[in-house]
């Protein structure tokens, strides 16, 4: 019920933002920047890159809003799709990614806003995820880190729900193996 209400609000905000209402778009940004930034943090090499990409994702969302059509999975899945495409493009076009050791882990540990234990777990997860194929990473992060439904994950990834469930099962096994080897 709460999620449904949230989606209705999203739809209203999106409709306003499509007319050029910056305030409405700002509200959508406040709602979804934290999860999108987290998603990106798990997917790229450095926190700075995640931040840059997050800005790019919302800029692109603003540009693409006129063509946004209200859909079952909602604005959240839509903006994650943009984020995922941005990550794919990031890895395809970037040449000088910082390595995990020197950037992401150190930076996130220095972040005083979060619990250090959480950071350690996040670091383990991230290290395990990095050994998985891109699609599996996306599905796992969206499903378990971001808590999206199967339908939303399917919308964000552009596959059917059934396909996403299979990917999730395979990916979870692979992640468990990778994290087990990492310990």
């Amino acid at each position: 019920m709460r999620e449904e209400l949230s989606q209705v609000q999203d739809n209203l905000l999106t409709a306003r933002a499509q007319t050029g209402d910056r305030e409405a778009f700002g509200e959508l940004y406040r709602r979804y920047l934290p999860p999108v930034l987290r998603f990106l943090t798990f997917r790229v090499a450095s926190r700075n890159d995640a931040e840059d990409l997050a800005g790019l994702v919302f800029y692109r969302a603003w540009q693409a809003l006129p063509r946004y059509r209200e859909q079952e999975a909602g604005f959240r899945a839509w903006v994650y799709r943009i984020a995922r495409n941005s990550v794919i493009d990031y890895y395809r076009t970037s040449r000088n990614h910082a390595s995990l050791d020197e950037s992401w882990a150190g930076a996130i540990m220095a972040d005083s806003a979060n619990d250090p234990d959480t950071h350690i777990v996040a670091e383990e997860v991230r290290a395990g995820l990095s050994r998985l194929p891109e699609e599996q990473q996306t599905v796992l992060v969206l499903r378990f880190v971001e808590g999206l439904s199967h339908a939303e994950v399917a919308e964000a990834v552009g596959k059917s729900e059934g396909a996403c469930r299979m990917i999730q099962l395979r990916a979870l096994k692979a992640l468990a193996r990778a994290m087990g080897e990492g310990r």
Partner: peptide, 13 residues
């Protein structure tokens, strides 16, 4: 592994 991801999801900006 799934539980670890949920915990990792607690990090914020």
């Amino acid at each position: 592994a799934a539980q670890a991801m949920r915990e990792a999801g607690l990090i914020g900006p």
